[in-house]
Amino acid sequence: MVEHRMIDVNGVRLHIAEQGEGPLVVLLHGFPESWHSWQHQFGPLADAGFRVVAPDQRGYGRSDRPDDVNAYTIFHLVGDVIGLIHALGEEKAYVVGHDWGAPVAWHTALLRPDMVLGVAGLSVPPPFRGTEPPLAAMDKRFGGRFYWNYFNRPGVADAEFAKDTRTALRKFFYWASGDAPDAGKGNQPLVDPERGWLADMPDPDVLPEWFTEDDLDALTESFSKGFTGALNWYRNLDRNWELTAPWHGTVVSRPALYIYGDRDVVPAFPGTPELIGKLPALMPSLWREPIKLAGCGHWTQQERPAEVSAALIEFLRACP
Protein backbone atom coordinates (compact mmCIF):
# COMPACT_ATOMS: atom_id res chain seq x y z
CA MET A 1 0.00 0.00 0.00
CA VAL A 2 1.24 3.50 -0.83
CA GLU A 3 1.79 5.60 2.29
CA HIS A 4 2.10 9.39 2.52
CA ARG A 5 3.99 11.76 4.78
CA MET A 6 5.76 15.11 4.89
CA ILE A 7 9.53 15.37 5.11
CA ASP A 8 11.92 18.31 5.61
CA VAL A 9 14.48 18.53 2.80
CA ASN A 10 16.90 21.24 1.71
CA GLY A 11 15.00 24.03 3.44
CA VAL A 12 11.56 23.02 2.14
CA ARG A 13 8.86 20.61 3.25
CA LEU A 14 8.05 17.95 0.68
CA HIS A 15 5.11 15.58 0.47
CA ILE A 16 6.22 12.06 -0.44
CA ALA A 17 4.46 8.82 -1.36
CA GLU A 18 6.30 5.58 -0.57
CA GLN A 19 5.92 1.82 -0.77
CA GLY A 20 8.11 -1.25 -0.43
CA GLU A 21 11.44 -2.23 1.09
CA GLY A 22 14.87 -2.66 -0.45
CA PRO A 23 17.17 -0.42 -2.50
CA LEU A 24 15.76 3.09 -2.81
CA VAL A 25 14.21 4.23 -6.10
CA VAL A 26 13.28 7.93 -6.30
CA LEU A 27 10.63 8.75 -8.93
CA LEU A 28 10.49 12.39 -10.11
CA HIS A 29 7.40 13.74 -11.89
CA GLY A 30 7.18 16.44 -14.54
CA PHE A 31 4.90 19.33 -15.55
CA PRO A 32 2.00 19.63 -14.92
CA GLU A 33 1.95 16.56 -12.69
CA SER A 34 2.52 15.24 -9.17
CA TRP A 35 3.64 12.06 -7.42
CA HIS A 36 0.38 10.55 -8.76
CA SER A 37 1.87 10.22 -12.26
CA TRP A 38 3.86 7.22 -10.96
CA GLN A 39 0.86 5.43 -9.42
CA HIS A 40 1.18 2.45 -11.78
CA GLN A 41 4.87 1.90 -10.96
CA PHE A 42 4.60 1.66 -7.17
CA GLY A 43 3.20 -1.88 -6.99
CA PRO A 44 5.43 -3.52 -9.64
CA LEU A 45 8.65 -1.93 -8.33
CA ALA A 46 7.80 -2.67 -4.70
CA ASP A 47 6.93 -6.27 -5.59
CA ALA A 48 10.29 -6.52 -7.38
CA GLY A 49 12.09 -5.72 -4.12
CA PHE A 50 12.59 -1.96 -4.23
CA ARG A 51 11.72 0.88 -1.87
CA VAL A 52 9.80 3.34 -4.04
CA VAL A 53 9.51 7.02 -3.12
CA ALA A 54 7.87 9.72 -5.26
CA PRO A 55 7.79 13.30 -3.97
CA ASP A 56 5.66 16.20 -5.01
CA GLN A 57 8.65 18.29 -6.07
CA ARG A 58 9.01 21.86 -4.83
CA GLY A 59 6.31 24.09 -6.28
CA TYR A 60 3.88 21.18 -6.71
CA GLY A 61 1.02 19.49 -4.89
CA ARG A 62 1.24 19.42 -1.12
CA SER A 63 4.92 20.42 -1.05
CA ASP A 64 6.24 23.89 -0.29
CA ARG A 65 6.26 26.45 -3.09
CA PRO A 66 8.79 29.22 -2.37
CA ASP A 67 7.77 32.66 -3.62
CA ASP A 68 11.21 33.54 -5.00
CA VAL A 69 11.59 32.48 -8.64
CA ASN A 70 15.31 32.00 -7.96
CA ALA A 71 14.50 29.14 -5.58
CA TYR A 72 13.80 26.81 -8.51
CA THR A 73 17.22 26.43 -10.16
CA ILE A 74 18.58 23.04 -11.14
CA PHE A 75 20.87 23.23 -8.09
CA HIS A 76 17.85 23.60 -5.79
CA LEU A 77 16.05 20.72 -7.50
CA VAL A 78 19.05 18.38 -7.39
CA GLY A 79 19.62 19.49 -3.80
CA ASP A 80 16.10 18.34 -2.94
CA VAL A 81 16.82 14.88 -4.35
CA ILE A 82 20.12 14.57 -2.48
CA GLY A 83 18.50 15.83 0.71
CA LEU A 84 15.62 13.39 0.26
CA ILE A 85 17.96 10.42 -0.11
CA HIS A 86 19.75 11.38 3.11
CA ALA A 87 16.48 12.14 4.97
CA LEU A 88 15.26 8.65 4.08
CA GLY A 89 18.35 7.21 5.75
CA GLU A 90 20.11 6.13 2.56
CA GLU A 91 23.51 6.92 1.03
CA LYS A 92 22.67 5.99 -2.56
CA ALA A 93 19.59 5.56 -4.74
CA TYR A 94 18.34 4.88 -8.23
CA VAL A 95 16.86 8.05 -9.67
CA VAL A 96 14.13 8.04 -12.34
CA GLY A 97 12.47 11.10 -13.87
CA HIS A 98 9.84 11.98 -16.45
CA ASP A 99 9.47 15.29 -18.33
CA TRP A 100 11.00 17.97 -16.02
CA GLY A 101 11.80 15.19 -13.57
CA ALA A 102 14.16 13.72 -16.19
CA PRO A 103 16.56 16.71 -16.27
CA VAL A 104 16.53 16.65 -12.46
CA ALA A 105 17.38 12.94 -12.50
CA TRP A 106 20.06 13.36 -15.19
CA HIS A 107 21.66 16.29 -13.36
CA THR A 108 21.55 14.43 -10.04
CA ALA A 109 23.62 11.70 -11.69
CA LEU A 110 25.86 14.29 -13.38
CA LEU A 111 26.52 16.40 -10.27
CA ARG A 112 26.49 13.67 -7.59
CA PRO A 113 27.44 10.37 -9.26
CA ASP A 114 28.65 9.13 -5.87
CA MET A 115 25.03 8.93 -4.72
CA VAL A 116 23.37 7.51 -7.84
CA LEU A 117 23.30 3.77 -8.48
CA GLY A 118 21.58 4.20 -11.83
CA VAL A 119 19.53 6.85 -13.63
CA ALA A 120 16.59 6.64 -16.03
CA GLY A 121 14.90 9.42 -17.97
CA LEU A 122 11.51 9.30 -19.69
CA SER A 123 10.67 11.63 -22.59
CA VAL A 124 13.55 14.09 -22.03
CA PRO A 125 16.96 12.73 -23.08
CA PRO A 126 20.23 13.22 -21.16
CA PRO A 127 21.53 16.79 -20.95
CA PHE A 128 24.14 18.03 -23.37
CA ARG A 129 24.66 21.73 -22.65
CA GLY A 130 24.24 23.88 -25.74
CA THR A 131 26.29 26.86 -26.84
CA GLU A 132 23.65 29.49 -26.03
CA PRO A 133 20.95 30.00 -23.37
CA PRO A 134 17.87 27.89 -24.23
CA LEU A 135 15.24 30.60 -23.80
CA ALA A 136 17.23 32.96 -25.98
CA ALA A 137 17.78 30.24 -28.58
CA MET A 138 14.08 29.36 -28.82
CA ASP A 139 13.07 33.03 -28.83
CA LYS A 140 15.35 33.56 -31.82
CA ARG A 141 14.19 30.42 -33.64
CA PHE A 142 10.42 30.84 -33.14
CA GLY A 143 9.98 34.58 -32.65
CA GLY A 144 8.98 34.25 -28.99
CA ARG A 145 6.19 31.75 -29.70
CA PHE A 146 7.81 28.63 -28.24
CA TYR A 147 5.98 27.60 -25.08
CA TRP A 148 9.09 28.04 -22.90
CA ASN A 149 9.09 31.73 -23.81
CA TYR A 150 5.35 32.01 -23.15
CA PHE A 151 5.84 30.44 -19.71
CA ASN A 152 8.62 32.95 -19.04
CA ARG A 153 6.17 35.87 -19.05
CA PRO A 154 5.47 36.46 -15.32
CA GLY A 155 1.89 35.75 -14.33
CA VAL A 156 0.55 35.13 -17.85
CA ALA A 157 0.42 31.33 -18.18
CA ASP A 158 -0.24 31.20 -14.42
CA ALA A 159 -3.50 33.09 -14.91
CA GLU A 160 -4.50 31.22 -18.08
CA PHE A 161 -4.17 27.77 -16.49
CA ALA A 162 -5.70 28.76 -13.13
CA LYS A 163 -8.83 30.28 -14.72
CA ASP A 164 -10.33 26.79 -15.11
CA THR A 165 -7.77 24.33 -13.73
CA ARG A 166 -9.64 21.15 -14.56
CA THR A 167 -10.29 22.14 -18.18
CA ALA A 168 -6.69 23.33 -18.59
CA LEU A 169 -5.31 20.01 -17.38
CA ARG A 170 -7.79 17.95 -19.42
CA LYS A 171 -6.84 19.80 -22.60
CA PHE A 172 -3.11 19.70 -21.84
CA PHE A 173 -3.01 15.98 -21.11
CA TYR A 174 -5.01 15.09 -24.19
CA TRP A 175 -3.04 17.41 -26.48
CA ALA A 176 0.32 15.89 -25.47
CA SER A 177 -0.89 12.28 -25.47
CA GLY A 178 -0.45 9.66 -28.15
CA ASP A 179 -4.25 9.73 -28.61
CA ALA A 180 -4.37 13.30 -29.96
CA PRO A 181 -5.03 13.63 -33.71
CA ASP A 182 -1.76 15.52 -34.45
CA ALA A 183 0.48 13.44 -32.16
CA GLY A 184 3.69 12.25 -33.75
CA LYS A 185 3.63 14.74 -36.63
CA GLY A 186 6.59 16.72 -35.33
CA ASN A 187 4.62 19.93 -34.74
CA GLN A 188 6.40 22.30 -32.37
CA PRO A 189 4.49 23.58 -29.29
CA LEU A 190 4.05 27.20 -30.36
CA VAL A 191 1.77 29.68 -28.61
CA ASP A 192 0.06 32.84 -29.76
CA PRO A 193 1.02 35.02 -26.78
CA GLU A 194 -2.13 37.12 -27.15
CA ARG A 195 -4.58 34.20 -27.29
CA GLY A 196 -2.80 31.85 -24.89
CA TRP A 197 -1.89 28.20 -25.24
CA LEU A 198 -5.19 26.54 -24.42
CA ALA A 199 -7.22 28.36 -27.07
CA ASP A 200 -6.32 25.99 -29.89
CA MET A 201 -5.98 22.80 -27.85
CA PRO A 202 -8.68 20.18 -28.48
CA ASP A 203 -10.99 19.41 -25.56
CA PRO A 204 -11.89 15.70 -25.67
CA ASP A 205 -15.47 14.55 -25.05
CA VAL A 206 -14.06 11.33 -23.62
CA LEU A 207 -10.75 10.97 -21.81
CA PRO A 208 -8.18 8.46 -23.08
CA GLU A 209 -8.48 5.03 -21.47
CA TRP A 210 -5.27 5.46 -19.47
CA PHE A 211 -6.33 8.82 -17.96
CA THR A 212 -9.51 8.51 -15.87
CA GLU A 213 -11.78 11.11 -14.31
CA ASP A 214 -10.31 10.09 -10.94
CA ASP A 215 -6.83 10.84 -12.29
CA LEU A 216 -8.03 14.24 -13.45
CA ASP A 217 -9.63 14.88 -10.05
CA ALA A 218 -6.35 14.10 -8.26
CA LEU A 219 -4.37 16.28 -10.67
CA THR A 220 -6.81 19.18 -10.36
CA GLU A 221 -6.60 19.02 -6.57
CA SER A 222 -2.80 19.08 -6.70
CA PHE A 223 -2.93 22.42 -8.57
CA SER A 224 -5.56 23.98 -6.31
CA LYS A 225 -2.95 26.52 -5.15
CA GLY A 226 -2.04 27.54 -8.66
CA PHE A 227 0.69 26.95 -11.23
CA THR A 228 3.29 29.60 -10.39
CA GLY A 229 5.66 27.33 -8.47
CA ALA A 230 5.66 24.79 -11.30
CA LEU A 231 6.12 27.46 -13.98
CA ASN A 232 9.05 28.94 -12.07
CA TRP A 233 11.07 25.90 -13.15
CA TYR A 234 10.86 27.16 -16.75
CA ARG A 235 11.79 30.67 -15.66
CA ASN A 236 15.20 29.34 -14.62
CA LEU A 237 16.14 27.69 -17.93
CA ASP A 238 18.68 30.35 -18.90
CA ARG A 239 19.99 30.61 -15.34
CA ASN A 240 20.47 26.83 -15.27
CA TRP A 241 22.49 27.14 -18.47
CA GLU A 242 24.74 29.67 -16.76
CA LEU A 243 25.06 27.67 -13.55
CA THR A 244 26.03 24.43 -15.31
CA ALA A 245 28.91 25.99 -17.28
CA PRO A 246 31.51 24.02 -15.26
CA TRP A 247 29.98 20.79 -16.54
CA HIS A 248 29.96 21.78 -20.22
CA GLY A 249 31.03 18.79 -22.31
CA THR A 250 30.66 16.23 -19.53
CA VAL A 251 28.33 13.24 -19.76
CA VAL A 252 26.42 11.14 -17.26
CA SER A 253 28.75 8.36 -16.13
CA ARG A 254 26.34 6.26 -14.09
CA PRO A 255 24.39 3.36 -15.72
CA ALA A 256 21.60 5.03 -17.69
CA LEU A 257 18.33 4.22 -19.44
CA TYR A 258 16.28 6.41 -21.77
CA ILE A 259 12.65 5.69 -22.73
CA TYR A 260 10.40 7.76 -25.00
CA GLY A 261 7.24 7.53 -27.08
CA ASP A 262 7.24 7.82 -30.85
CA ARG A 263 4.27 10.23 -30.66
CA ASP A 264 5.78 12.43 -27.93
CA VAL A 265 6.28 16.10 -28.83
CA VAL A 266 9.43 16.52 -26.68
CA PRO A 267 11.74 14.15 -28.62
CA ALA A 268 10.76 16.15 -31.72
CA PHE A 269 12.12 19.45 -30.32
CA PRO A 270 14.76 21.08 -32.56
CA GLY A 271 17.97 19.04 -32.47
CA THR A 272 16.54 16.33 -30.21
CA PRO A 273 15.99 13.59 -32.84
CA GLU A 274 19.63 13.94 -33.87
CA LEU A 275 20.75 13.77 -30.24
CA ILE A 276 18.72 10.62 -29.58
CA GLY A 277 20.28 8.98 -32.62
CA LYS A 278 23.77 9.73 -31.32
CA LEU A 279 23.13 8.80 -27.68
CA PRO A 280 24.72 5.32 -27.78
CA ALA A 281 27.95 6.86 -29.09
CA LEU A 282 27.82 9.94 -26.86
CA MET A 283 27.06 8.07 -23.62
CA PRO A 284 29.08 4.92 -22.94
CA SER A 285 27.08 4.50 -19.73
CA LEU A 286 23.83 3.97 -21.65
CA TRP A 287 22.61 0.53 -20.65
CA ARG A 288 21.08 -0.24 -24.03
CA GLU A 289 19.69 1.51 -27.09
CA PRO A 290 16.98 4.06 -26.18
CA ILE A 291 13.61 2.34 -25.82
CA LYS A 292 11.02 3.79 -28.21
CA LEU A 293 7.39 2.95 -27.38
CA ALA A 294 5.11 2.71 -30.41
CA GLY A 295 1.97 4.86 -30.30
CA CYS A 296 2.98 6.47 -27.01
CA GLY A 297 2.75 10.20 -26.42
CA HIS A 298 4.32 12.37 -23.76
CA TRP A 299 2.86 10.78 -20.61
CA THR A 300 5.14 7.75 -20.90
CA GLN A 301 4.66 5.88 -17.63
CA GLN A 302 0.91 6.55 -17.63
CA GLU A 303 0.22 5.69 -21.28
CA ARG A 304 2.40 2.54 -21.22
CA PRO A 305 2.56 1.58 -17.51
CA ALA A 306 3.31 -2.13 -17.89
CA GLU A 307 6.06 -1.63 -20.48
CA VAL A 308 7.70 1.17 -18.50
CA SER A 309 7.57 -0.76 -15.22
CA ALA A 310 9.04 -3.87 -16.85
CA ALA A 311 11.86 -1.89 -18.49
CA LEU A 312 12.67 -0.09 -15.23
CA ILE A 313 12.78 -3.31 -13.22
CA GLU A 314 15.04 -4.98 -15.78
CA PHE A 315 17.35 -1.96 -15.77
CA LEU A 316 17.45 -1.56 -11.97
CA ARG A 317 18.27 -5.23 -11.52
CA ALA A 318 21.03 -4.99 -14.13
CA CYS A 319 22.81 -2.04 -12.47
CA PRO A 320 25.99 -3.09 -10.65
Rank of each mutant, 00 (worst) to 15 (best):
V2C: 11
M6W: 00
H15D: 06
G20N: 10
V26L: 15
L27D: 00
F31T: 08
W35E: 03
W38C: 07
Q39K: 15
Q41W: 12
D47K: 12
A48K: 02
P55V: 04
D56L: 07
R58G: 11
G59V: 07
Y60P: 01
Y60S: 01
P66V: 09
D68N: 12
A71W: 02
F75K: 01
G79A: 11
K92L: 06
A93H: 05
P113Y: 10
D114P: 07
L117K: 14
V124H: 12
A136L: 13
M138N: 09
R141E: 14
G144V: 03
W148H: 11
F151K: 00
R153D: 06
R153Q: 12
G155D: 15
A157W: 01
K163Y: 11
R166L: 11
R166P: 03
A168L: 04
Y174Q: 05
A176V: 15
A183W: 06
K185Y: 12
L190Y: 03
L198R: 07
P208L: 02
F211R: 01
D217G: 07
E221P: 03
G226L: 00
F227Y: 10
T228A: 15
G229K: 04
W233Y: 15
D238G: 06
R254S: 13
P255H: 01
Y258M: 02
G261D: 02
V265A: 10
P267W: 05
P267N: 08
F269C: 00
G271P: 12
E274G: 08
L279Q: 04
A281V: 10
L282E: 13
L282G: 14
M283N: 15
P284D: 11
E289R: 14
Q302K: 14
